[in-house]
């Protein structure tokens, strides 16, 4: 091996190294199980939202597909999980979760062919259209879905037959956090793989991708399907932890809020959705104590301000903040690992 080849191999692998920031993030996340027991209910919602946002990041941040209909997968799987539990089709929650994910992924696979062609606006319309259609269906078949009253009478069995869901949300939080972590690990492997690299390339220049031998459509179908599966698991988690599912899981607002969550955190580096979810949920919690009804106004204002500031500038701030955190962390535990932060930056496009 020539020195250059060794350097190349080295650099290609280095991008994927765990940075101080990442390790700190997950330590804090898992520590919250013991440190913030009274916040477990909101943390559960946060973890679910984070998983949901992670799914959007995979298609928007990596593959560049604008979607305003991610709620379609969230909601479908949410109902599936609810019905499966209600009628005792699949009792064990983990199995039900996986099946819900598969159902959503199947829906994602079928609808992925609709987003292959067309401009951003057509994609927006098609994704939105699909979720609205499902919303209409859920409303129409209210004998099955419970319609506007929501799906009542869902009882969720203990996880693996061992851990019963409790009213303080302790079990639910640990469960959601583990699911989030596993999905995150999968996503992380994926984005640093050759497949993940090809997604970033497609986002950058789909025309050129074809010219270097990448089957663009097949890749988009694959990631859209996987992201739908993740979104579906998030929806199923919501149903399982609340033992309830209502029409708003399919609503436009859910997809729009999701976009906001991801934008707050930044796209294209995986942590955007997670950090965005934390900020969003705790901000919501805080504003709700001040002016509960007009929460939507502040959300809107935030979106407008973010765009006016510019997402690339925000990304730079994020990066600086993360670097500072990571330095703090490495210093705190007295451990140096060199400049490994590179590569995990949000994209600037």
């Amino acid at each position: 091996m020539t020195p250059l080849a060794a350097d190349v191999a080295q650099r290609l692998k280095r991008r994927a190294r765990w940075s101080g920031f990442e390790i700190a993030f997950w330590i804090v996340a898992f520590a919250s199980i013991w440190l913030l027991p009274q916040k477990h209910l909101i943390l559960t919602e946060t973890a679910i939202l984070a998983l949901f946002a992670l799914s959007l990041d995979l298609i928007l941040g990596y593959a560049g597909i604008i979607s305003l209909g991610q709620a379609a997968f969230f909601g479908t799987a949410g109902y599936f999980a609810g019905l499966a539990a209600k009628y005792g089709l699949i009792n064990e929650p983990v199995l039900a979760l996986l099946c819900s994910g598969l159902v959503a992924a199947a829906l994602g696979f079928v609808t992925s062919f609709l987003v292959l062609r067309g401009s951003d606006l057509t994609r927006l319309m098609v994704t939105l259209g699909v979720s609205l259609m499902l919303g209409e269906l859920a409303n129409r078949y209210s004998n099955i879905t419970g319609g506007a009253d929501g799906l009542q009478g869902v009882t969720v069995a203990p996880i693996l037959g061992l851990f019963q869901f409790d009213m303080f949300g302790h079990t639910g939080y640990v469960y959601c956090l583990i699911v989030l972590f596993v999905c995150f690990l999968i996503a992380r492997r994926l984005v640093y793989s050759p497949f993940g690299l090809s997604l970033r390339a497609i986002k950058g220049n789909a025309l050129r991708c074809g010219a270097v031998g990448i089957p663009v459509n097949a890749r988009l179908v694959a990631i859209y399907t996987l992201a739908a599966g993740f979104a579906g698991m998030a929806g199923a988690l919501l149903t399982q932890t609340t033992a309830f599912c209502s029409l708003d899981v399919l609503s436009l607002e859910r997809s729009a809020d999701l976009l906001l969550v991801l934008i707050i955190g930044g796209t294209g580096y995986l942590y955007g959705g997670l950090i965005g979810a934390v900020i969003y949920k705790f901000m919501q919690d805080w504003i709700a104590t001040l002016t509960p009804q007009y929460w939507q106004f502040w959300i809107g204002l935030l979106l407008v301000v973010i765009v006016l500031i510019g997402r690339d500038r925000m990304a730079a701030w994020h990066e600086a903040a993360r670097a500072a955190l990571a330095r703090l962390f490495t210093r705190a535990i007295g451990w140096r690992r060199g400049p490994a932060l590179g590569g995990a930056g949000p994209d600037r496009s």
Binding site: L124, A256, Q296, I299, G300, L303, I306, V307
Partner: peptide, 26 residues
């Protein structure tokens, strides 16, 4: 916002929608 990518335009105008809905309600 004219020269911005479509994603920015979507976010920006959705933000305006949310604000208008809440403000009218108020």
């Amino acid at each position: 916002v004219y020269a911005r990518p479509h994603l920015d335009q979507v976010l920006f105008t959705i933000g305006l929608v949310f604000m208008s809905v809440a403000a009218t309600d108020y």
